[in-house]
């Protein structure tokens, strides 16, 4: 039992020495913007889009940028707190789940603006970007209802957060317009990064008869695309980014959030001192939310359906606040 007793003081001494040696660290000058994502930026969707936005903030605004991935609530709060303590001007908490942590941290750091993408409400220096992606998911549903042969469609969600649920509900409602009585099935994976679970869920939906799928599951959706590629006669609608490249012959269209555009716009406002905390909501009318049809799969549906999609898109955009 003697060894550990020697190890612990040694570690503590080393830590104290390091604290003296490397106090501070990192640059403190310039306009600095940070991004905290809830998962890997290799998801080809939600997190990748935000990371691309961060790159544009660096290139267009000359900002010093930093990114970190934080999966658990504890890590998320720690990441927000660390960036704020280091004097970052803007910290993006990339997802609904950051709202509570940002509100706790923001009270101690009034000089940092916290932007919660897909957030909920304004609290002091915490402000949300709301993406009405469900408007595009509704269009996907319209097309899916016309496309399904079996009359069964499937949706794979990550965690059952309000924006995810809204996307599902709009998708199902859209499909019911073009295919009355359509059977809408869904699965929530309870995470956003287990691609194997995404693939299993997609296969389960396909076994239940679903031949057209949609998702909102970030990196886990890579498994959904795999399942579609593995099963002839199935189609998929992408989400969050234009995902046609993930299955070029089978992706009909994608419900897209132009995250770089939204992120760059907010960061620019803060840099120029024009930012006021408010709920900034983006729908189809803004151009930040888009419905991107994959040209290679366009022939899967008759022009009359695409014309309907365009009509509904225009009416949603016109009705936007």
């Amino acid at each position: 039992m003697r060894r550990p007793r020697r190890l612990l003081p040694a570690l503590l001494a080393a830590a104290a020495g390091a604290a003296v040696a490397c106090g501070g660290g990192g640059q403190r000058e310039g306009f600095r913007v940070a991004l905290v994502t809830p998962g890997s930026i290799a998801d080809a969707a939600w997190n990748a889009g935000a990371y691309a936005g961060l790159g544009q903030v660096r290139d267009s605004l000359g900002a010093v940028v930093s990114h970190v991935e934080a999966r658990t609530p504890a890590e998320q709060e720690e990441a927000l707190r660390t960036y704020a303590a280091e004097g970052y001007a803007v910290v993006f908490g990339h997802g609904f789940e950051f709202q509570g942590a940002a509100e706790r941290v923001a009270a101690d750091h009034p000089n940092t603006v916290f932007i919660i993408t897909s957030g909920e409400r304004v609290r002091g220096n915490v402000a949300p970007l709301v993406f009405r992606l469900h408007e595009a998911s509704r269009l996907a549903g319209l097309a899916a209802g016309a496309l399904t042969r079996t009359g069964v469609i499937g949706f794979v969600g990550g965690i059952e957060l309000p924006p995810i649920r809204e996307a599902y509900e709009a998708w199902a409602a859209g499909a019911a317009v073009t295919r009355p009585g359509v059977e809408s099935r869904f699965t929530y994976l309870n995470n956003f990064d287990d691609a194997a679970a995404g693939r299993e869920a997609a296969h389960a939906l396909i076994r239940q008869g679903a031949d057209v799928l949609h998702h909102n599951a970030d990196a886990a959706a890579l498994g959904v695309f795999q399942a579609v590629r593995e099963t002839p006669g199935t189609w998929i609608f992408g989400a969050n980014a234009d995902q046609a490249a993930l299955a070029p012959e089978r992706v009909v269209a994608s419900a897209v959030i132009d995250l770089p555009r939204a992120i760059l716009a907010v960061a620019r406002e803060v840099k120029e001192g024009r930012f006021t905390p408010r709920v900034e909501s983006f729908g189809l009318a803004s151009g930040v939310i888009r419905f991107e049809v994959n040209p290679r799969a366009r022939a899967a549906l008759p022009d009359s359906v695409w014309a309907l999609v365009v009509r509904v898109r225009d009416s949603i955009a016109a009705a936007a606040p």
Binding site: G26, S40, H67, V68, Y83
Partner: peptide
Amino acid sequence: GAMQREAGVPSV
């Protein structure tokens, strides 16, 4: 976490 924040190396 710090490695990713400061040096851009994935924390995994």
